[in-house]
């Protein structure tokens, strides 16, 4: 094999790996780095189960090469929680029962994270638009949309607290 040496950052940690030239980022994450949160649903970009964030942009990791993330920053669902403390999105997904089988959940969480990083106060329409590249065959989406809405409210509350805390 013709190996490609790649140096990148995954969830804040520097990672170096050698991969096949045609190996997808999804394969690298799952098979080389042991990060199995991103799932392969379709392999063609339809389902979004493999969603990760590269340099702040939500992408399907099945449609990005491992070699393409050289020098870039990758964020996956594994980086969402802070140690044992779940991210508000994860809390609200649980609270709102926004998952059933769970296969699509990592992709939805990451897509929702990308949305809220970009737009902390989205309308329902904006939430639905931002999650449109992710398929769920169990929930019917409504609970997911409500969970993201609730997490956004929670995050706004805590960032306000932080801001007023700084003033003192």
């Amino acid at each position: 094999m013709n190996g490609v040496q790649v140096s990148t950052t995954v969830n804040g940690d520097v990672e170096e790996f050698v991969c096949h030239p045609g190996e997808t980022l999804l394969e690298v994450l799952r098979n080389r780095l042991g990060l199995t949160g991103a799932k392969e649903g379709c392999g063609t970009g339809d389902c979004g189960a493999c969603s990760v964030i590269v340099d702040g942009q939500l992408v399907c990791s099945c449609l990005v090469l491992g070699a393409e993330v050289e020098g870039r920053k990758v964020a996956t669902v594994e980086g969402l929680a802070d140690g044992n403390r779940l991210h508000p999105l994860q809390d609200k997904f649980l609270e709102h029962a926004a998952l059933q089988c769970g296969i699509c959940t990592p992709g939805f969480l990451v897509a929702a994270k990308a949305l809220l990083d970009d737009n902390p106060d989205p309308t329902e329409e904006e939430i639905r638009y931002a999650l449109a590249g992710n398929l769920c065959r169990c929930t019917g989406y409504d609970k997911i949309v409500r969970a993201v809405d609730a997490a956004a409210a929670e995050l706004r509350k805590s960032s306000k607290k932080k801001a007023s805390g700084r003033k003192k």
Partner: peptide, 9 residues
């Protein structure tokens, strides 16, 4: 075009 993920890449 397509979905947010695909437009980003």
């Amino acid at each position: 075009v397509a979905s947010p993920q695909i437009r980003n890449q």
